[in-house]
Every structure is written in structure tokens, then in C-alpha cells.
């Protein structure tokens, strides 16, 4: 790939990020941090969700079944390890941006250690545990609003903040691994998708069996995303207090 093209792609990502950030700011209410999920594009989102469901049914799910049946568990584990490893530079950068020293140290050590096997084998067998954090989480840390809920074709559910973070993360993670694994890059996205589909097949089946799978997925995603962000205790307490208030009211 020549330099001009690379520059153009980076410019494109940058513009996308700016648009997303503007979108977050314009669509967010004053205090939607602890409120219900904001879904102003529900109609369009449902259409994209249908499309994604079709893609899952006819492409991803069969591919995942073949993957599960043909490959030995250890090989699948290796692939999982690789997809985890390849996303670690994003965590390292964002741990730094969030001043999460322990997470930064642990993720860096683990990344360097497993780079000896190109990430396919976890040399410390899961002993070093760190929290995966992306740029969306960093935006949350610096009080950017969550933004409206989106369903992105092929990628699935995202908040606008998370989606903007994804774009940045994708570029930084790939930049960090320029030479060692460049030949693996083109397989990264499909392999990651199939690996994740196999891992979460039970949850996906559960969602699909619901009378309103769209609402169920949105709830699972938002709960998981909000509670796994490395944000202040204050934010977490607000979430808990809000829920407790609701419960106490119902118990009166």
C-alpha cells in the first residue's frame, strides 16, 4: 500500500471520528449518563438489526458451526488467544490515557510475553488478568456522553461513543503490529467474528428466542457496556443508587 493511500485512509478514519464525536455531543441529553438508553434511531436500528440477524443466520452461524466441528479445541483456543493479543495495544494506549497504571503495566507485560508466540499461546495461562479497555471507555472517563444507541451493519450494537472509540482503536491496534503480523491482518476481522460467534453462541441463541430480540440485545449490551467501563466510583454509585431507588419504590 502506498503512502498516499495510507494517509487517505487515516484521514477518513479521523473524519469519521470527528463526526461521531459531534454526533455524541449533539444527540446526548444533559444527563443521560445514568438514564435509560437513548434510542432515537430505533426504526433504522431495527432494520439494521434484521439485516445483521440475516447475516448471522446465513453466514456467521454456519461458519461458526463448521469452525467448531472441524477445528480442535486447542486450535480454537489459540485463535482466541491471538484475537485477544492483537487487541491488547488498544488497551495499553487507553490504560495510559486513563492513568490506569496497574492495567497499563499488566497489559504491557502480557502483550510482550505473548508476542513470543505471536499471541497464539498464552504463556502465563491466564494468570495475568487485566481489564480490556478501548477508546470509548477513555471518552467515558473524560465525561463524554454515551450518545444514542446504534446498530452498526456487521458490527452489531454500539453506543455512539463506543463506535467512535472502535474506529480509533482499530487504527492504533493495527499500527502497533505493522510488521510482525501484517500477513494475518486480512483474516483478522472474519476470524474474530467467527471466534466470538462460537464463544457467545448460547447468549445469541437466547437473544434470538426472545419475542423481541432487538430489545433484549440492547439491554444486554447497554448493561454490559455501562458496568464494564473503567469510570469513577461516583458514576458506578449513581447507577446502583438509581436502581435501588426504583426497587425501593416498588417495595413500598
Amino acid at each position: 500500500m502506498n503512502i498516499e493511500r495510507k494517509m487517505l485512509i487515516k484521514l477518513y478514519y479521523f473524519l469519521l471520528l470527528i463526526i461521531s464525536i459531534l454526533l455524541i455531543q449533539s444527540c446526548s441529553s444533559i444527563d443521560n449518563k445514568v438514564s435509560e438508553v437513548s434510542d432515537p434511531f430505533e426504526k433504522q436500528n431495527r432494520k439494521v438489526f434484521k439485516f445483521n440477524q440475516g447475516f448471522d443466520k446465513y453466514v456467521l452461524s454456519p461458519a461458526s458451526n463448521i469452525y467448531k466441528k472441524t477445528l480442535h479445541r486447542n486450535i480454537r483456543k489459540g485463535v482466541s488467544n491471538y484475537t485477544e493479543w492483537v487487541s491488547t495495544p488498544g488497551t495499553i494506549i487507553n490504560s495510559g490515557l486513563q492513568f490506569e497504571g496497574e492495567n497499563l503495566a499488566l497489559s504491557t507485560i502480557k502483550f510482550l510475553l505473548n508476542s513470543m508466540t505471536l499471541g497464539f499461546y498464552d504463556l502465563d495461562d491466564g494468570e495475568t488478568k487485566f481489564k480490556k479497555i478501548d477508546f470509548g471507555s477513555t471518552l467515558a472517563k473524560y465525561n463524554f456522553s454515551e450518545g444514542p444507541y446504534l446498530v452498526v451493519p456487521f458490527l452489531g450494537p454500539r453506543t455512539t461513543r463506543h463506535f467512535s472509540g472502535n474506529i480509533i482503536n482499530y487504527t492504533t491496534a493495527n499500527d502497533g503490529l505493522k510488521d510482525e503480523t501484517s500477513y494475518l491482518k486480512k483474516y483478522e476481522i472474519p476470524v474474530n467474528a467467527i471466534d466470538k460467534r462460537t464463544k457467545f453462541s448460547n447468549i445469541i441463541d437466547d437473544i434470538n428466542s426472545s419475542p423481541d430480540p432487538y430489545a433484549k440485545l440492547r439491554s444486554y449490551y447497554i448493561q454490559n457496556r455501562r458496568k464494564n467501563l473503567l469510570v469513577s466510583e461516583d458514576y458506578e454509585n449513581k447507577l446502583i443508587e438509581k436502581e435501588e431507588e426504583e426497587f425501593e419504590k416498588l417495595l413500598d
Partner: peptide
Amino acid sequence: QSQKSETLSL
């Protein structure tokens, strides 16, 4: 929360 989201949507 998950059940609430599903029921309320319907």
C-alpha cells in the same frame, strides 16, 4: 433489567 426491557418494548 433484561426482562423489563423486553416486556416494556412489546
